[in-house]
Write a protein that binds this DNA or RNA. Structure first.
Lengths: 120, 120
DNA sequence: GCAATATCTCAATCATTATTGAAATGTAGA
DNA sequence: TCTACATTTCAATAATGATTGAGATATTGC
């Protein structure tokens, strides 16, 4: 369960163009992730600057890294993203589920195979 | 459909303790919202400072305001919150729905009455 | 219109964050 | 071990954001 301190750090990390692009690139890349060099090129920042931003994202728990040969591979931390979303919308119902239902729908739309995978 | 510019502004707005508390207070309050004075007291900031923060949140599209008598009532903009969440996780599947399913579950957990309300 | 309440705007100060370049670290292959 | 490649650390500068207080605006009831 995420607390406010973590949530603020996570949102602050996402509130910067380059970092949001980093996270989105890694979310799109999926569990395989991307090497630092590829990521820097894709996001359009110098390597030295990418390092600064991935450190911040890593510190916020939104991405992870592993070494593979001489490359460092970054991946999105999907469970943390889920926790962050849950924190933001926690207690949103208060007896009125129609209030937060749109958010659930919006997110569910990203599931490519509607069916039992959504409740796995 | 939210674009990157809006998403960065929204996340940046949420990446600050007082503003996150404002949004969470309004999410919890639901469609009825809270008056500026109540909100300032609940979040623990001076009125002059609250004004600065709600302006930023309003500009990011995360909250709305309406006048009621001599009070200004703020409410969370629930559809924008849904769009923001959808933007963050867009294209997260790439043939692997199990990747983003945890995020969907986390959010769905906030729905108090599981059933048809979730797909309304 | 006048006084009281609620909120906002403005300008100044303080604090934090982003970016850059140079040098350092760690890894792989000859 | 030597060279090339990938990434990080460090220090300095530039840019942006938070907070405060004083004054301005808008609304209500007398």
């Amino acid at each position: 369960m995420m607390d406010q301190r973590q949530a603020v750090a996570a949102f602050a990390a996402l509130g910067q163009e380059h970092r949001l692009r980093i996270v989105r690139a890694l979310v799109t890349a999926g569990p395989d992730g991307l090497a630092a060099g590829v990521l820097a090129q894709e996001v359009g920042v110098a390597g030295t600057n990418l390092s600064f931003h991935v450190k911040e994202l890593s510190h916020a728990g939104l991405i992870q890294s592993r070494r593979e040969g001489r490359s460092v591979i970054y991946t999105a931390t999907f469970p943390s993203l889920g926790d962050l979303i849950a924190f933001l919308m926690r207690d949103c119902c208060q007896g009125r589920p129609e209030v937060c239902a749109p958010a659930v729908e919006a997110l569910a739309a990203c599931l490519c195979t509607p069916g039992d995978t959504a409740h796995a």
